[in-house]
């Protein structure tokens, strides 16, 4: 099967701090990965390297056939294929929901305004927020904002989506609506890497769960085996903590 994202021997430093240590990860087309691990283990850093929000010291990243390097052309090609959803939503507060969704399609994909609006309305419907298109982000609840952020990324029609703790800034009652949106996206065959501690979501959609600690991939397995029979001591400790909180 063709791979969508390939990371080989990735080394990443912040100054002298070794943030990613020999990361090797291949994500097949349509595969769903859940990435978990303690705070500071490098989960965000890992997925931010994929769309070049962070630069790596060495190693190779290939996304949808585009080899990532520092050239603007390669970066553009990769960003064109992957969408990203952030913990803090990062919607543009001075633009309406619709304007948030059409900006990049018009600037980057060079769609006309009417084409971009049609696409935007389609995806806003899809995340069940079509009736809020004219509102500003601040007028929406956290869950609604995060769904808009998902729609905004989908408007670029990416081949893969990266999620960095998309539900951890949300009030508990809004977590489900966002997870439901992600589940439906997964059902439609989107390739996804999700940093999340929502273990229910991991069991439901993940093909593989990856556990990171200290900048390394410590363990990876299918969700069933990962949760029922974690191999490493650190994984067990981490799962114990997560479960204690839920």
């Amino acid at each position: 099967m063709a791979s969508m994202i390939e990371m080989q021997h990735i080394e990443k430093y912040y100054g002298a701090f070794h943030a990613l240590k020999n990361i090797n990860l291949t994500v097949a087309k349509g595969e769903k990965i859940v990435l978990c691990g303690p705070s500071g283990s490098g989960k965000s850093t890992l997925i931010r390297c994929i769309n070049h929000l962070e630069t790596i010291k060495s190693g190779e990243i290939v996304v949808a056939g585009h080899r990532l390097n520092d050239s603007q052309k390669a970066v553009d090609a990769v960003r064109r294929e992957v969408g990203m959803v952030f913990q803090q939503f990062n919607l543009f507060p001075h633009k309406t929901v619709l304007e948030n969704c059409i900006l990049a399609p018009m600037r980057v994909r060079k769609l006309s305004r009417s084409e971009a609006e049609a696409t935007a309305r389609k995806y806003l419907e899809r995340v069940r927020i079509g009736d809020q298109a004219e509102k500003y982000p601040a007028q929406l609840s956290g869950g609604q904002q995060q769904r808009v952020a998902i729609a905004r990324a989908l408007c670029m029609e990416p081949k893969a989506m990266l999620f960095d703790e998309p539900t951890s800034a949300l009030d508990p009652e809004m977590v489900k609506e966002v997870l439901d949106t992600m589940v439906s996206l997964a059902r439609d065959g989107m390739t996804m890497i999700c940093v999340t501690h929502e273990m229910g979501f991991a069991r439901q959609v993940a093909d593989r769960v990856i556990f990171m600690a200290d900048g390394q991939i410590v363990e990876e397995n299918d969700p069933e085996s990962f949760f029922s029979a974690p191999k490493h001591e650190r994984t067990r400790a981490f799962l114990g903590e997560i479960l204690a909180h839920h």
Partner: peptide, 18 residues
């Protein structure tokens, strides 16, 4: 302006000027 704004724009593929 929060850094996340510029990062979201970058992730969407928007260039420096935009």
């Amino acid at each position: 302006v929060p850094k996340g704004q510029s990062e979201a724009a970058q992730a969407l593929g928007l260039h420096g000027v935009s």
